[in-house]
Each structure stands twice: as structure tokens, then as C-alpha cells.
Computed example of a mutant assay.
Amino acid sequence: MSSEEKNNSGSNDPAAYFRSKLNFEIDVMDVADAPPGSLVLVDTRRQSSWDHGHIPGALHLPTAEIPKLAEQRIPGDAQVVVYSWGPGCNGSTFAALAFAELGYAVKEMIGGIEYWIRNGLPVETASGVRMAYADALVTAHRP
């Protein structure tokens, strides 16, 4: 098979791969800038991680509970965005798969809460919402 035939078949087409990937991922800043109510943001981490800090307005639904609780807590037509800790954790990938298997439109927030925090975005704990200090090496969007 020639390289042109491989590219046309899609099986070895880098552009098709990256185009597809962008359909299922969303950047931290795109989530932060999304119109209110346009996304259902789901924190898929365990309870202790949620208690340590989470994105304000996120719904806590650990990955293992998605199959039994998602349909009770999230409308079927919602655009779901899942997150876990960060790039070193694939928990949100497992969560995205669980939502996809239930028929939800789902995206994975790349960078997770780690990059949310590193971009200087708010984090909520039992004591309230606090702003993180932006890491200048990560973001040019926030001071």
C-alpha cells in the first residue's frame, strides 16, 4: 500500500488522528471561558481528593460510580467534561469512556485540576473558594 493510500484510508493519517483527538479533548482555559451552563464539569477523583480541592461548580462523581449514578445526576443531552488530577493520571480517560459507553457527549479536560491550578484558576475547599497563583511558565492568560 502506498503512503497516499494509507493516508486516504485514515489508518495512518496523522491529521485524521489529531482532528479526532480534538473532538474528545478540551483545554483548561476553554473550560474556564465556557459560557455558564454550557458544560457539566465532572470531577472523577476519590472523595479525599475532592475534599482537598476541586473546581467550583463541578459535580463530584468518581469514575467507579458513573455507570450507576450518571443518568440520575446528569441529563442525557448534556455536554460532559471530565477531569482528574493531571497529565500523569488517566482517571479522566476511564471516566470519559464510562460516559461515552452510556451515550453521553463527553470530553476530557487535558491537564486536569493540576493545570487548572497552575493557570491560576479558582479552587474550592470546605473553607471556601481561593484563587491559585498562576505559573508564568504555564499560562499567559492570567497575571
Score class of each variant (00 low, 15 high):
P62D: 04
H52A: 11
H54A: 10
D33S: 13
A58D: 08
W85G: 05
N119S: 15
T93P: 06
G57M: 14
R73E: 10
A98R: 01
V82N: 00
G120F: 05
W85Y: 10
E114S: 15
F94W: 09
G103D: 11
V81M: 02
L102Y: 07
I110T: 14
Y115D: 12
G37S: 06
E114P: 10
A100M: 04
E108H: 05
A105E: 07
S38T: 08
P56D: 14
M29R: 12
A70C: 13
L102A: 04
P36N: 09
L102F: 09
N119L: 11
G111Q: 10
G91S: 00
G53H: 02
Q72M: 13
G37V: 07
P67M: 05
T63S: 04
L121I: 07
S38K: 04
D51W: 00
F94R: 14
S48N: 13
G111T: 09
I110S: 10
W85F: 04
P36G: 09
Y115S: 11
F99N: 02
A64S: 13
D43G: 05
V42A: 00
A32W: 12
S48H: 11
I113F: 07
M29I: 13
P62N: 03
G76F: 14
T44Y: 02
D30Y: 01
G86R: 04
K107E: 03
N119M: 15
L97C: 09
P87G: 15
S92T: 01
A64Y: 14
A70D: 09
H54M: 05
I55W: 07
S92H: 00
S92K: 02
L39K: 06
R118W: 15
A32V: 06
G111D: 08
L39A: 07
V42E: 03
